[in-house]
Structures are given as structure tokens and as C-alpha cells.
Amino acid sequence: MRWARLPQSGAQPVARSSHSITVVDDKLYLLGGEHDPRVPVGSDVYEYSFTDGIWRVLEAKGEPPIPRVAHAAAAVGSTLYAFGGRSGLEMGEGASNDLFSFHIPSATWTRLTPNGPPPPLRSYHTMTSVGNRLYVFGGCGEAGRLNDLHVYDTETNTWAALAAPSEAAVPGRGGTCLVPAAGRKGLYVIAGFCGRELDDMHFYSLMEYGGCCWKSLEAGGESPGPRGWFASATTPDGRLVVHGGLDANNERLADMFVLDVHA
């Protein structure tokens, strides 16, 4: 496995943390986050092309989420979903568990009203999709850092709680990222904050492919290094992309790395 830095030009987003990036086909979509501490930068949707390395801002319609930090986002087909996060300036202030969809072809936002109990209010969590389902992991809740796991079925518009991994296998954390493995057989948990910035990576196999098994992973090349509050996504060919975040010196980053899991 090996990391490499990606080129960036065009309407490049400012350095930020606590945002999200989501890959759909050959494009990457960035939403939210903070440049100044605890101040949401807005609700603009940025689009990045892997083909030419150019950023642009989309002209969105509908009801967007209010500006927020520490939310999570993932895509099913050509629809982007954004869940939770907080809008307040103080830790825990304005925490939410709302769910929005963004239809990319029409650039339209919709606020959803799902069935079933949603995940508790949280921020600094992570979310990804496998098939028609969204998975939400961890974050900061009222009782501290979490490592719980929830699933949202986009076809039935329903939330359900799943079994959490053990605290020994994957400690509760915020500012981490959960991304799917190639072939939809499992999920990667990457770095995050558990009292300090982490540079670890774990793989969690989904129940239908062998059941709830965790293992730690290591990679060569130029590592992104310890960081939290960053964003990550998986490309169609199974590579992992990491963008921005906070390093161990509490500095905001604008770098971007890609991990070839087959190298």
C-alpha cells in the first residue's frame, strides 16, 4: 500500500477540518467544516474532478442543511446524504441527528424524515455507504466518545442500531473516517481523536461477509501522519482518499493523499 499527493486547482476550498468528502464516479464532493475554530464555513457544495484536478462550486437548490461542522456524508448512487453534526460554537452546542439528501444531477437538497430510531445526537462521527445502506460510526455524544454502529436503509427510509465493535478492538473516537472496502466486504476506520490524534487504520468485515471481525492495518509510502477531524472517501477502483484535518500540533491542513490498497 502506498500514499501519493493529489494536484489541486480551480476554486480550491480553504484549509479546513471537520468537513466531509464523498466520491461519486470520477468526482469528489466536499461539504461543510471549519476554517476558524468552531465557526462553520457554509453550506456550499464543492466538486473536484479526478480527471483534471480542478475544483468548482455547485449552484444548489432546495433546502440545504444549515452551516455546520463535524457532520458526516456518504452517497448512494447519484444521491449524497449528510447526517448530524453541530452548528453551535461550543462543544456539544447545536448537535443534531438530522438527515439530508442532495441529488447530484439536479443539485437539489431535501430534508428527510426517516422511520425508526435515529442515532443519538452527535458530532465528529463518520458515515459511509455499502449498497443501498448508510453506516454511521462513533463520534462525540452526550456520554463521551462513541464506537457504536447504526445503519440507514435508503430504500425503506429506516434507521436501525447494529452491534458495536469492542472498545479494545477500536476505542471510541471522534474525528475519524469510516470508508468501504472494494467489493463491499467491509469498512475501514482511519485515524481520528481519542484524547490524542491517531494514525491507525482498522478493517471491519460486514456481517454478510463473515461477521464483525476487526484487524489492524499498516501501509508504506508517504503517510498522512497523525490527524483527526479530516475527510476521507473511496474511489470506484478501491483507493482511499484523505483530505485536510488537524495534525498533532493542532494545525489545519489542506493536503490530500490517496492510498492504493493493492500496491
Rank of each mutant, 00 (worst) to 15 (best):
L146F: 01
E59G: 09
G10H: 03
A182Y: 12
I104S: 05
P117W: 12
I66C: 06
L217Q: 11
F203G: 09
P226G: 14
V76Y: 14
N157K: 10
C212A: 13
P13K: 15
W109H: 14
R56A: 00
G225K: 10
N147Y: 13
G77S: 13
E47S: 10
F83G: 01
N157T: 09
A263E: 10
S166N: 10
Y46I: 02
K215Q: 13
V57P: 00
L80H: 03
E218C: 08
Y188F: 15
V170M: 13
R86F: 00
G175M: 03
K61N: 11
D148I: 07
R16C: 06
E34L: 03
G144T: 07
S96V: 02
V136L: 01
D148S: 15
N97P: 02
V130K: 14
C213N: 11
V258M: 15
V151F: 05
F50H: 01
I190R: 06
E47N: 04
C140A: 14
R86C: 02
W229Y: 10
R145N: 07
V136N: 00
G225C: 06
P171W: 06
V136T: 05
G138S: 08
P7W: 11
I190G: 04
G77A: 12
E142Y: 13
T176G: 14
E93F: 02
K61P: 02
K185T: 15
M207D: 14
Y188N: 07
A231Q: 06
N249T: 08
V136F: 00
G84V: 02
P67S: 15
G138W: 01
